[in-house]
Design a protein around this nucleic acid. Structure first.
Lengths: 244, 244
DNA sequence: ATATATTTTTAGACTAATCTAAAATTTTGT
DNA sequence: ACAAAATTTTAGATTAGTCTAAAAATATAT
C-alpha cells in the first residue's frame, strides 16, 4: 500500500550523498572507488585512463569524459595524459563506498551464511545504498568489524582506514610461521580453490620448500597438513608473522 | 583490494532481472510497482497517467513515454487515454520488487531497530537490489515473515500475495472489539502520531463513540485506555475482528 | 634521435529518462 | 448536445553516460 516512491526518479541519476551533501551518481561513486583501490595498489601513484577503462569495463574515451567531470567537481587531481589521484573530497567518498561494501560483505557472510566467493556482486550493489543511519546501525549490528571476509580493512565512519601490514606468502622466508590474513585477488575461482584446500582466514601457514620443478610452494597448514600451492596462489595470499 | 567492478556500468541503466531474465531498469521497476499498488488500491481498475505522474514525481508527458515503452515490452496493457493495468509479466516484476521492499523493511525494524516511520526511503533503495539468492536468504534470516512492519502482506518467492481482509476502523460498528492489523498511510507524520498514542500493530481497539462535535472516534485501547482519534486517523487504521 | 607504437583526448553520435509547449482526446456542466 | 475544462499524448529539447573514429600527446625501440 505504500506508494510514495517519487524520490527514486531523481535518485536514479543523482542523489544527495551523505558525504558532505554533494550530488553524486552511482557511476561517479564507482569511478572514485576504483581510483582509490588502484591508487592504493600502486602505492599512491597516479592511475591511468586505460587502467580505469579496464576496471570500469568501459572504453578509454568514456573514462576521459568522466575524468573531466570528476575534476570539475574537485573529486580528483587530473593532469591530462598523466593520470589521476583523488582529492581529499574524492577520497572521503571512495572510503564511504568501500566502508559500505565491506560492511555488507560481513553481513552477507556472518548473518546470511554466504560463502566469501559469492558476495562480491551483491556488495557492489549494496555499497551504493545511501543512508548514514543505516550504515551506522549495520556496523553496530555486526559488532563493528574491522575486517571484511576477505581480510580487507573496513574504514571507520570518519573515513579512517585501519592500517595493515600484510605480506605476500611468496615473500616469506622458508620455515617462518605466519597467519593467513587476506587475499589480493577476489575472484570466485581463486576463493573456491582456497576453500578446497581448507586455506581460510586465520589459518597457520609455513613454507617448507619451493619446488625446483615448477616453483610451487610446499606448505604446512595448521602445523598439520602438507600441501602444494602454485606460485600464483602464494603471491595472492596475504599473511602476517605471528605476534607482530 | 577488490577491484572487479565493471558490471555496475551496465547495471546503472539495465540489468538482467532475476524475474524471467528480462532486462529492466530501476525506473521501469518503479513504474510497475506503483502501477501494482495503485491498481490494488482502486480494486483492479485501470490507473491513469496523472496518478502515475503524481506518484513517480514526474510529469504526465514523461509517464506517457514510459507507458509506451512498458507496453512495447508487454509489461502493461495500455489503451491510450484510458489508463493501464499490468500484464502477468509486469505483475510478477512488481510483486518481486514489493517482496524485496517489505522484507527489507522487516530487516530494518526487527534486526536494526529502526522505527516503522524511518524505513520507507531506505527500503525504496534496497528493493532494487538484484539477487534471488540474497532475497531467499534474507527471507530465511527473518524467519519467513508474512507481513511487514506496517502490516502489509509480503508476496512469496513465487509472487503469490497473502490475501488479507482488513477493514477500516471507521467502518467498524460501535463496541466491536478488533485488532489493529495495518495502516493505509505510511507517512512518518502519521506513524509517529500513532506511536505517541501507543497505537501499535496488534493492539486491541474498540470504538466506544463517534463524537457529535467533530466526528472524532472515542476508542478503548487494549481494554484499558480511553482516547480520541480524528476521523482521518480512524479511516487509515486497518483492523480485523478477532478470531476470523 | 627520430620513426613507430601506444595511450589519451576530442568530436560527434546514441539511448534512457526526463522536461516544456502544443496538439489531441475525453470529460463535465449547463 | 455541445462548449469549456481537464487529461493525455506528441513533438522537440536536455542531461548522464556511453560508444566509435580520428586527432593529439607520450612512450618506445632501434
Amino acid at each position: 500500500m505504500a506508494i510514495s516512491c517519487g524520490l527514486l526518479a531523481i535518485f536514479l541519476y543523482y542523489r544527495l550523498s551523505t558525504v558532505d551533501n554533494q550530488l553524486i551518481s552511482f557511476t561517479e561513486e564507482n569511478y572514485l572507488k576504483i581510483i582509490y583501490l588502484l591508487t592504493e595498489r600502486h602505492n599512491g601513484n597516479e592511475v591511468s585512463t586505460n587502467q580505469l577503462a579496464e576496471h570500469t569495463q568501459t572504453k578509454a574515451a568514456s573514462v576521459s569524459d568522466m575524468l573531466r567531470k570528476l575534476a570539475e567537481k574537485n573529486y580528483i587531481n587530473y593532469r591530462k595524459y598523466q593520470g589521476v589521484t583523488l582529492t581529499e573530497a574524492g577520497e572521503q567518498i571512495a572510503l564511504s563506498v568501500i566502508r559500505k561494501h565491506r560492511l555488507w560483505e560481513v553481513f552477507l557472510v556472518e548473518k546470511l551464511g554466504f560463502g566469501w566467493d559469492e558476495i562480491h556482486d551483491i556488495a557492489e550493489q549494496l555499497e551504493h545504498i545511501d543512508s548514514k543511519e543505516l550504515t551506522k546501525r549495520l556496523d553496530d549490528f555486526l559488532e563493528n568489524p574491522k575486517f571484511d571476509p576477505h581480510g580487507d580493512p573496513i574504514p571507520d565512519a570518519k573515513g579512517k582506514m585501519p592500517s595493515v601490514s600484510y605480506q605476500k606468502l611468496s615473500e616469506i622466508p622458508l620455515n617462518q610461521s605466519v597467519v593467513m590474513m587476506g587475499v589480493s585477488v577476489h575472484s570466485p575461482a581463486f576463493l573456491q580453490h582456497l576453500d578446497k584446500q581448507q586455506i581460510t582466514l586465520g589459518c597457520d601457514l609455513k613454507v617448507l620448500e619451493i619446488s625446483d620443478f615448477d616453483k610451487s610452494y610446499g606448505l604446512l597448514l595448521n602445523n598439520d597438513i602438507r600441501l602444494f600451492v602454485s606460485n600464483e596462489v602464494a603471491r595472492n595470499l596475504l599473511v602476517q608473522v605471528q605476534n607482530s
